[in-house]
Design a protein around this nucleic acid. Sequence first.
RNA 1: GCGGGCGUGGCGGAACUGGUAGACGCGCUGGACUCAAAAUCCAGUUCUGGUGACAGAGUGCCGGUUCGACUCCGGCCGCCCGCACCA
Length: 876
Amino acid sequence: MDSERYNAREAEPKWQQIWEEKEIFRTGNADSRPKYYVLEMFPYPSGRIHMGHVRNYTMGDVIARYKRARGFNVLHPMGWDAFGMPAENAAWHNKSHPADWTYANIAAMRSQLKSIGLSLDWSREIATCDPSYYKHQQRMFLDFLDAGLVVRKKSKVNWDPLDHTVLANEQVIDGRGWRSGALVEQRELTQWFFKITDFAEDLLRSLDDLPRWPEKVRLMQANWTGRSEGLALRFELDPALPVTAREIEVYTTRPDTLFGAKFLAVAADHPLAAEAARNDKALAAFIAECHHGGTSLAAIETAEKKGYDTGLRARHPFDPDWKLPVYVANFVLMDYGTGAIFGCPAHDQRDLDFANRYGLGNTPVICPPGEDPKTFKITATAYEGDGVLIHSRFLDGMTTRQAKEEVAKRLEAQTLGNRRQGKREVQYRLRDWGISRQRYWGCPIPVIHCAACGVVPVPLRDLPVELPRDMSFDEPGNPLDRHPTWKHVACPECGAPALRETDTMDTFVDSSWYFVRFTDPWNAAAPTTPAMVAKWLPVDQYIGGIEHAILHLLYARFFTRAMQAAGHVGALKEPFAGLFTQGMVVHETYRGMDGAWLYPSEIRLAMDESGRHAYKIEGGEEVAIGAIEKMSKSKKNTVDPDDIISVFGADTARWFVLSDSPPERDVIWTEEGVQGAAKFVQRLWRLMSELAEIAAPAGTPVPVGMTAEATAIRRAVHMSLIKVEEDIERLRFNRAVAQIHDLANKLSAAIGAIENENLGPDMRAAFREAADIMVPMMAPMMPHLAEECWAALGHADLAAEAAWPAADRELVVEDTIALPVQVNGRKRADLVIARDAGSAAIEAAALELEPVRRALDGRPVKRIIIVPQRIVNVVG
RNA sequence: GCGGGCGUGGCGGAACUGGUAGACGCGCUGGACUCAAAAUCCAGUUCUGGUGACAGAGUGCCGGUUCGACUCCGGCCGCCCGCACCA
């Protein structure tokens, strides 16, 4: 046949069009074959796709195409996480409307995604900014409100001064806004919250039911939930003090250290602190100072533990004559536990730092194993581990565990003000999810504030509450609030003039249920169709970046539970049965003499004795090669997928991002690597063309009892097939790539070894089978090239429709095996012997081998270990 | 500080449950083809010694278990990620 080059630029659009015309990737909801739902995290429509998208979506596409070939009814949809701040920023910068900007970006990115050749069902496409989507989200908000899963409360919020909006704790990274990077301030606002804490226990426990999630992600979520078991206990305050409070409730996980207590401390925002400050100007000043301290990482790390003695005295629960001073302390947090602690300096580093500063002393009450209780002392380092109780009256001699139990038991039996003085409690670090955002481009929260009726839900018949189109974005703050008419409505209950809620929802709400909507995006009447939810969910394989390990995935897990409570998803609890977090695409950076970053396309690389060098193409000046980093516009170390696809084709790009690195690790984008991938595409095309020429016609059955050479080819092919199958199933794409390379090498060698006389019917049949197996094997990764080859091989159907070949597992079992033989653990020879040879025969044959005798050097054989089918080790 | 992960040729990486270390790719070296180049094909490529057959060393470092350790255990060193005053 011809040795023409494969022209990806022509072939790829051709096959994409054929797939589209034949609706190959349209997924039927009525199909009764076993289902498989593969989903990649949907993109934000920034306007252009980047290599990270290519990698993410290619991985999902390989799975989708593979599962389809294996006979599954595959759901592989795509949509747009389309609300969010960039659209508003763009509106402000170029006077375009957020909606126009967003939909234009979607159109551009959709066509880019199509050029990658992804096997997506575009008929299910959704955009979260579309009223047909957010209408249902508003409906669910109201359902959650009914179910008691939404609350409105005043709270201290993280205020992003640059974006003029509230951020969730999870969105504050090192004290800065996750998007703007601005230092976050504390403000008090009335906000809407989803009660994610109602599910804290379940969200934590259910992590055990997610074996196909990375351990790392489950661990991060567990830590985020931050469960702790402890005791809430009340201290009686000394009466005759100028406060109305009679007691302080503290929370502790170490009730065993109660006899080591030296002080009590409350948070600066604690009601008691406020009350005590009324008569104490210095205390009021101290509290103000605490509020002032930033939340930035630097501020927290350098903040010394400081406190102020309120003058109040509390009674030890087990000794009314034992008085403890009550401090206001900057390291006590109001929103964890009760906002108050008892300090045991000997066994808590923070308490020790504090006590040392204010000369409160310490009494060790836990003696570590191996220490002498009589001499054990604490000076600068607290002992936070377990041990045996000392200096603790009735607890002396108990273990930490016993003492915790004993204290809890006694305090539960003891009363203070007619109530049990202690109560076992479980605390979580997890906070409720604040969803109010003071932005325009988000899903409006569907409630109305009426002076007479209070907070009134928007009636279902009035949904969606649509965003007004006529807007201006030239001032900071919430644009919806400034709109002249939009917020003015009649109260649905009393008809009086009322005001709409002008906050919109956090965009993480949008992405918390889109995977459910994909199962029936055509349902206009309800958010979901329970039968379709039952049919498709959970998602079998979800793929996305590790950066969503906590935020998005935890919210989606919560939302699924809330939807279950509201009757939208049947019994579904966990949305994603399998999760895979892929690594980033990274690239070297280049910097000119003037310090300016340069695009890879602006430089030329060269090798000489002193190593690799980079030169500016224009001018030839040498530039510095910098660190390999995540592709980013600011460092210009980006490669545009469009450029790669137009020069090399989508298959080359797909192949490259799958090869080299394990998928969970970062992949380094290199020019050489892309060239290598492009060359391999051409090589496969040549190989398949050659095979097409010498192979038996399509449909020729494999004859029984072939020549040895023909059988060897068949073995190699089936062996590769088995391995590729395993690798794709386990998402080890880099190994599948290596396997296909290997098979190509073997087939090339086999073709090269042909003499005219041995190209008999057996060989022709073996080559036919090889080609017919190899094309479906490469099809998930290089779908366009596969189509071209499939057609060249004389097939009338599409490679995209071809079934995954059945591997012949018996064929690959050979009659003779090459058994490695070690002497004292070091390999010395290969023993070729019958597969079913007995140990005696193997022993004898192994000792006959010349290299074995040489290695033994006349020493007697002490023993011989034979691991069947694996190895022989001669010990001498 | 707490939690987790990783460390293998010049480079990316392979090695299933303890059983041939370095698959496969990139790069490099030599050769073929060519007037020449590109492309392609062939051979080699862990290190040290040796023309060679071969011998010795070798998976961050030190030690242990084992017939046998990249893999398991103990102790260090280095890098990466997450969390961080959560009582």
